[in-house]
Design a protein around this nucleic acid. Structure first.
Length: 310
DNA sequence: CATTAGAA
DNA sequence: TCTAATGA
């Protein structure tokens, strides 16, 4: 549930361009609602981010794929003046700013944000004073607004993990709980906590949807002690190792692994690993009994979760 | 890309 | 039913 965007910076020499491009992208998506411009800006940012030499002019940039006339000119403008008129204007546009901040509340997207603003609701505080105009989801979003933007220290996650496990194991010792995400990759703090819960009878008896449902509801009830607010409840999804793999990430690790699978003749996703026939398309999911299996099949050197921090 | 809430 | 929002 982390809403913070991860820009493509760190050690790229065009990061300043990337920054303004990303800002433009955000603007296009939240305020104007132009997904194309949004995508255009971000692909441009991404090529610039990977390009291994500092761009000195718009024309130079223009050679890169994804950078055309407009962006090329913006790069020039930025290079000369240290600024961007378009961005300056956006910064001065109060409503645009308001939309951007409202959008940080989970449950509030570009459309609602715009609607709120047009109805004079322009700040988090305004939202708090109009809690009657919010959905349940949004209410939680504003109630914990600050908390949601904070990172969660590993130790805190650890003890939630402990409580969760006790609760669940006591419910039914067959349950197994795995906290994935950056926590599993050993990070000191995380944006959220991804818990994967499985039960053996769910793995094989896929057919018995009845048992499945029972298990799920008892699980949900058991969680009531630990959980303070529920945003939404859905109908059970099932995946296993592929899911653990997937939810452990990181995103870029997943991408590279998927790509690798691909040229080893497999297609990998959150549910399964399947061989791809040259005819064009894929077939029966291969049997996976561990995360390692997945690596094996596509003969990709096994990486521990800690090594997946790419 | 699939899943949920909610509204009217 | 559709539409908006989340995630990953």
């Amino acid at each position: 549930m982390s809403k913070r965007k991860n820009p493509s910076d760190d050690n790229n020499l065009n990061s300043d361009f990337c920054d303004f491009l990303m800002e433009l992208a955000e603007y296009e998506k939240n305020v104007s609602r132009n997904v194309h411009k949004y995508n255009a800006y971000r692909k441009a940012a991404s090529v610039l981010a990977t390009h291994s030499k500092r761009i000195e002019s718009g024309d130079e940039a223009k050679k890169l794929s994804g950078i055309g006339d407009k962006i090329s000119k913006k790069i020039d403008e930025f290079l000369q003046t240290g600024k961007l008129r378009k961005l300056e204007n956006i910064h001065q546009d109060e409503d645009a700013q308001a939309i951007n901040t409202l959008t940080r509340v989970t449950g509030v997207g570009p459309v609602k944000a715009a609607e709120f603003v047009r109805n004079g609701i322009k700040s988090i505080e305004d939202l708090r004073n109009n809690i009657d105009k919010l959905t349940h989801h949004q209410t939680i979003g504003v109630r914990y607004f600050e908390d949601f933007e904070k990172k969660i220290p590993r130790k805190e996650i650890q003890d939630i993990e402990g409580k969760l496990k006790n609760l669940i194991k006591n419910l039914d010792p067959e349950f197994t709980v795995t906290i994935c995400g950056s926590y599993r990759r050993g990070k000191r703090e995380s944006g959220d906590i991804d818990a994967l819960v499985t039960h053996p009878s769910l793995k094989i008896n896929e057919k018995k949807k009845k048992h499945e449902a029972k298990l799920m509801k008892s699980l949900v009830d058991a969680l009531k002690g630990l959980v303070t607010d529920v945003i939404s409840i859905g109908d059970t999804k099932f995946m296993y190792y592929c899911a653990i793999l997937y939810f452990t990430g990181s995103d870029v690790f997943n991408k590279t692994m998927r790509a690798h699978a691909l040229d080893k003749g497999f297609t990998l996703n959150e549910y399964a690993l399947r061989p791809v026939g040259v005819t064009g398309v894929p077939g029966e999911p291969v049997q996976i009994s561990s995360e390692e299996d997945v690596f094996d099949y596509i003969d990709y050197p096994y990486k521990t979760p800690e090594e997946r921090n790419m």
